[in-house]
Nucleic acid binder design. Structure first.
Length: 424
RNA sequence: GGAGGGGUGGCUGAGUGGUCGAAAGCACCGGUCUUGAAAACCGACGAGUCGCGAGGCUCCCAGGGUUCGAAUCCCUGCCCCUCCGCCA
């Protein structure tokens, strides 16, 4: 959520910045509602003030043994007037809230202009794709010939967009998780977290998935309530600081967590239907940092490098791109994507996304720190990034480490986790 | 699943339906003292929001209700604790 004060003071400027993000902010509607709100709020608060004053008078009169009947008569209609004023204000406030909850974060000035992923800007490249003197297979074909990766059986068990892994394949999948967690905790200073895989509505509102993107989530009815399967560990981990005022000495807070992620992929029918690129259920090692605002931009760069470190250790060629405004997520002020080279597809594919959400989530979460300089609670900045997506990393390993005769060589960095297995 | 007890400021913890946004303690902050620190003492000290301002409004888990007036009474929900039962 944006700062309503800033929006109120200069709605045109806000609207202009949001153009970059392909979002049309309803300035006229907002101004109109804002004027109504102001009027209704002043009326309502004046009535409340009057009620409070009168009630105190009655209290005093009663204490000194006076007759309070005349006083009671005076306040007779006040209650109804107040109810009506509050009802009106509530309606207007709800409308305003609806608008504000649906407004995306403002993009940073450094975010490239553009409509789609085609307009993203490459920042740097690392590694050189291997020269494969044979026609490289994609991971689906490799999984089939090699065994261990089976989409058909998964479809029988559940449906499309699920995967079944067995044997060495499953082991390497697990090895990737362990490897990534170890790197992030022991080399980059993150604290490992185990979190719930189902969350409540408040948590999803806090990180911005609700109210706008409910159709992307799997819902789990529970009694007369509803839980949701997490679409990313960002949700439970970032919500650790919801409604908290953290001590300056505790910052930065750095968590990494491995979780499954569940996405309905509602808007993606027909996209990436082959293989493990886009699944309803996938594993991810996530990094989350909660920082004081002045450091969040440096943190974004550092976290991007924390994700890059994984690819470098696995010796997988990749590039870093800065997302353009049109491709930027709802809550992000700026995002770097890591795209890994996939020989089987002959292109770079997204494998990690690292974002600075600035105070956008913090405002929704009421996540604050006590600034020693002011002594006041102030909003934190939140960042998150994949470090990395496991399924897609497995795909990258399969395709980059394949041999002419269809074997997969286990990357050196994974050997300690493979229990003696050196190839698939 | 059954029976009880609770949810109050950063933390602990008082609170009779009426100057209670809330005692007290701790922590934090400022000061005195000190070469410096500690201790002691003094002072300040919840959050949000509206208003140009004076100042107002809201918040004692959440949502309803009773009342002129609710932290306090009633209902519902959520969460925590204790005991019993069941259980990976």
């Amino acid at each position: 959520m944006l700062d309503s004060k800033i929006v109120r003071e200069n709605p045109e400027a806000v609207a202009e910045q949001l153009v970059k993000k392909k979002y049309i902010f309803p300035v006229a509607r907002f101004n109109e509602l804002e004027a109504l709100r102001r009027e209704a709020q002043i009326l309502s608060e004046n009535l409340q003030n009057e009620r409070n004053t009168r009630s105190k008078q009655i209290g005093k009169a009663k204490a000194s043994g006076e007759d309070i009947q005349p006083l009671l008569a005076e306040v007779q209609n006040l209650g109804d007037q107040l109810d009506e004023a509050k009802r009106k204000l509530g309606e207007i406030a709800a409308d305003l809230d609806n608008i504000l909850l649906g407004v995306p974060n403002l993009p940073d000035a450094s975010v490239p202009v553009g409509d789609s992923e085609d307009d993203n800007v490459e920042v740097r490249r690392w590694g050189t794709p291997r020269e494969l003197d044979f026609g490289p297979l994609d991971h689906v074909a490799l999984g089939e010939s090699n065994g261990g990766l089976d989409f058909e059986t998964a479809a029988k068990i559940t449906g499309s967009r699920f995967a079944l892994m067995t044997g060495k394949m499953a082991r390497m999948h697990r090895a990737l998780i362990q490897f990534m967690l170890d790197v992030q905790t022991s080399e980059h200073g993150y604290t490992e977290a185990y979190v719930p895989y189902m969350v409540n509505e408040d948590s999803l509102k806090g990180t911005g998935q609700l109210p706008k993107f409910g159709e992307d989530l799997f819902k789990v009815p529970f009694g007369d309530r509803q839980f949701y399967l997490i679409p990313t560990a960002e949700v439970p981990v970032t919500n650790i600081v919801r409604d908290e005022i953290v001590d300056a000495a505790q910052l930065p807070i750095k968590y990494t967590a491995h979780t499954p992620c569940f996405r309905s992929e509602a808007g993606a029918s027909g996209k990436d239907t082959r293989g493990m690129i886009r699944q309803h259920q996938f594993e991810k090692v996530e990094m989350v940092q909660i920082v004081e605002p002045s450091t969040s931009w440096d943190t974004l760069e550092a976290m991007t490098q924390h994700a890059e470190a994984i690819l470098q250790k696995l010796n997988l060629p990749y590039r870093v791109v800065a997302l353009c405004g049109g491709d930027l997520g709802f809550g992000a002020a700026k995002t770097y994507d890591l795209e890994v080279w996939l020989p089987g597809q002959d292109k770079f594919r997204e494998i990690s996304s690292v974002s600075n959400m600035t105070d956008f989530q913090a405002r929704r979460l009421k996540a604050r720190w006590r600034n020693p300089e002011t002594g006041k609670p102030e909003l934190l900045h939140t960042l998150n990034g994949s470090g990395l997506a496991i399924g897609r990393t497995l795909v990258a390993v399969l395709e980059n480490y394949q041999t002419a005769d269809g074997r997969i060589i286990v990357p050196e960095a994974l050997l300690p986790y493979m229990g003696g297995v050196t190839e698939l």
